[in-house]
Amino acid sequence: MPEVINTWQMTEQGKGGNPGKLTKTTIPVPELAEDDVLVEIAGCGVCHTDLGFFYDGVPTVNKPPLTLGHEIAGTVVAGKSDYIGKNVIIPAVMPCNNCPICDQERGNRCLAQKMPGNSLGVYGGFSSHIPVPSGDLCVLDELKHPLSHYAVIADAATTPYQAAMRADLKKDDLVVVTGVTGGVGVYMAQIAKALGAKVVVGIARNQAKLDRALSYGTDFIINSKGKDIKEVKGEFAGICKQAGVPKNVGWKIFECTGSGGGQEIALSLISFLSKMVVVGFGLQPNKYMLSKLMAFDAEIIGTWGCLPKYYNNVLAMVHEGKVEIEPFLETKPMSTIEQVFEDQHAGKFDKRQVLEPDF
């Protein structure tokens, strides 16, 4: 049991794209409840959500000062004896498991959920240690990758799985992923294919990353850069003809960009019996004629996080090689957090950044 927790704390939130303030400091190790554990952090991924908190003033449940970071893997070093010494992934959202929402198996959106770096007191992943409830931990019985690398499963790779469950994704379904080259989109395509999707069409703006996506779950690609909606839909129709599938029936559309442009493309592809699942987060408003949903008998669905019970399913996909994580991440010392935030906010990275504690 350490005497204190070393941490990079967000002491001020930014606004309108201007950064907040990070301070290297220490915080107390709390008294652990009967079912709590203390996890020594091996790695914490930097998520778009963290940047939203830090640069755009997106409200957090607990106000600064608090430590950001919710993509965490590490080793249990104290607390409930059954877990001591075990390597674990900490779910990004941990439901209370005792409310009407949880009773409906929708605990990923439990209003009393605990999310590191948001609603878990001052505690988050950009630290040496973190106290968490033990009940929803995903235990790693074997390591096929460095422990820190499993941090991306805590959110980037599991959020798409939850989205697939919300869409009732089944074998031979037709799938579109807008933002297929992004930190979540790269896993959305792989998970869709692992679940048996017949055709996966990826849409994004970076040609090199789009070409890469063809090796990771994506069957066809569309580069939307500099193109209007009509052009994108024309390319989509051509792909459907080539693949021998309908262009206007049954597509499941996963919007992973959180950008106005990406959302506009996704909305334009809604057709008969479609389901559009909103996975990415953005602050911009949208315009859409809701009566189209009636005419198409279509749906727009929101999704948030992932139920802890699904983590082992995703872990199995990773260990079986159906979902690749190594091509899409790189590690850096946690002491570089300020530069990493700045560079990631500027769009300079091609891969998920995982910060490893070096206090």
Rank of each mutant, 00 (worst) to 15 (best):
M1Q: 15
N6W: 12
M10T: 13
G14F: 12
G20S: 10
K21N: 12
T23H: 07
T25S: 11
V29Y: 08
A33F: 11
A33N: 15
L38E: 07
I41W: 15
T49N: 03
G52T: 12
G52S: 13
P64G: 09
I72V: 10
I84A: 14
G85Y: 05
N87A: 09
N87L: 12
Q104S: 14
N108S: 01
R109T: 13
C110I: 02
L111G: 12
K114A: 05
S119T: 02
G125K: 04
P131A: 00
P131D: 04
P133Q: 01
P133E: 03
V139C: 08
H145S: 05
P146V: 05
L147Q: 03
Y150I: 00
Q162L: 03
M165L: 00
M165N: 02
D168H: 06
K170G: 00
L174R: 04
V176C: 13
G179W: 08
M188R: 07
K193G: 10
L195M: 15
V200N: 05
V200D: 09
I203N: 02
R205C: 15
D219I: 13
F220T: 03
G226Q: 01
I229A: 05
G234F: 05
A237C: 12
G238P: 05
V245L: 08
C256Q: 14
S259K: 09
G260V: 15
G262A: 06
V278H: 11
G280E: 09
N286S: 14
K287D: 13
Y288P: 09
A298V: 09
K309T: 10
K309D: 11
A316C: 06
H319N: 12
V340S: 06
Q344L: 13
A346T: 01
K348I: 11
L355C: 04
P357G: 11
F359D: 11
